[in-house]
Design a protein around this nucleic acid. Sequence first.
RNA 1: GGCGAGGUAGCUCAGCCGGUUAGAGCGCAGGCUUCAUAAGCCUGAAGUCGCGGGUUCGAGUCCCGCCCUCGCUACCA
Length: 566
Amino acid sequence: MTRYLVTSALPYANGPIHFGHVAGVYLPADVYVRTLRMLGEEVLSVCGTDEYGVAITLKAEQAGQDYGEYVRGWHDNIQNFFARLGVEFDIFSGTSQCAQHEETAQDFFRQLDANGYLEKKETTQLYSEEDGMFLADRYVMGTCYVCGYESARGDECPHCGTWIDPLKLKNPRSALSGAEPVHRQTRHWYLNLPKLRDDFIGGWIQNHEWKPNVSAFIQNLLEDVPSRSITRDLKWGVPVPPELAGDEEGKRLYVWFDAPIGYVSFTKELMAQRGTPDEWRRWWQDEDTRLVHFLGKDNIPFHCLVFPSMLWGTQQDYVLPWQVPANEFYNLESGKFSTSEGRTFDLDAFFERYDAEAVRFYIITTLPETSDSTFSLEQMVQTINSSLAANIGNLATRVLKFIGKNFEGKVPALAPEHAQEFDRQILMESGEIQDPAESIRAFRFREAAAILLANSSVGNVFMQRTEPWAMRKTDPEKAASALNTLCEWIGWMARWTAPFLPGKAQALWEQLGQPGQVADQPWPGIPDASTWRSLQAGAPLGTPEALFPRVSLPEENELSLPQEKG
RNA sequence: GGCGAGGUAGCUCAGCCGGUUAGAGCGCAGGCUUCAUAAGCCUGAAGUCGCGGGUUCGAGUCCCGCCCUCGCUACCA
């Protein structure tokens, strides 16, 4: 039987994440997983932080923390942010804290080497004796040998745009200490992507059906793939397998190589926790698995070409990606989200004013699925008030409060003689009813959100036409039948909305007096006249309360980061 | 400089391989309704599809040129 292995791009543990990341990756992944679960699919959702690399060592040193402590801090910070938005994974680990990661990453290295997909090359790099390290291109400054600009970086000259060869820079110096680096020979392993492409992956990519914005990205990718260096002279990372390192000392795996392997090692970790350590193979090495990578567009080449090459190159029967629902970028109204530039919100203040699930819903309605899109506070307030408060939320309160006042707060009875008429009215004549899960399966999340609203409108239209408030005086039994029908509809809304608004859907479920977790209900699909009703007449309802209070724009500076207030 | 994305109603966005009067939601206007979170329902106004050429029987949709916006170019979706 088919099973779904869902991964979300590993956030780098050197800073907070923001709505941009959430919209691009984690929220759609969460909705996808929750939907599949209700559909009865077997699903595993894996994520964690990417915790190695030079950037982290430098920042940790600046902060005066040891590396493990430093990444742990950001790991927890990021996890808290996900928790606030209701984004959940089966496991949220980290590449330096996962007990299985080092060995797993080394195994990839060994297997790729054994199969002839690694090559060792000698190169000259800049070494800073002052800093005691080889300098990544980014950490070299110097005079541009093309235009003479004095503050060129080791990767690019910001003045003339030349791609710099750091070895040719005039007057090179370390961006860290300012000391002059020396040339030093070093040997590194490279992943032979051209060979992997020619042996298999090239053909696989061309025959695979990708999301349109993904195909556009990888079209030109194949023609010009270089071998990529997969080791570095680093202090913080997975060591090259000792038996292969030989006389090379201090070589560690380059983060880009070890990070995606985290998907595998985190799965192993989870299965070990569950007491079934071999179970990971069923997820990663079984052809019935559908591997789905959620990520941002900048990660497309990596997950469509490089990581599949690594998986296949081990010759260990790893599954290759089934779908890569990459999203575009999500920008803040006045530009991009950026924590470092203060272009984000004080989240404590933000979530004090705005309900996290309402925010979740707004973000889903604006996901950057086909092109970059924009987060706007004003738009968010409008969406919460019109779509959530007035449409979905108000449908529940208008029905349930009315029943509370006039029908003793119990599910009103459906008279058999009205059933057919009302079935027809709500299922056929009050607007088109669609199944949001079909859109979710196709990774069209915004469309799914629109369907939820349309389905909710069906309830409002039905109520408007049947006018139970008027009927109550002339034909109370018929009014009861209409309200019974509306209660059923609210039950459907609770189930349909559960993946999007997990907490609110549960509250709605309880207001209907239903037991248990709505998320444990089977996915309802599209109502069929002969089977769609399930409520017990006379069963007590819960206490009706507004699910989504109306909201307004924040006061000036209310949501600014603390250091910017005032 | 290089690479990428985009410029479609007031706003945010759909419009796949070119084909009848260009769509949605919100906002706005008018009417109806009062059960409800000043919520609901109905109707409506509103766009020279960035600019200029070209291909075509026919282009928002393909080609060329130009203008503008944004992002990446740091191991940040």
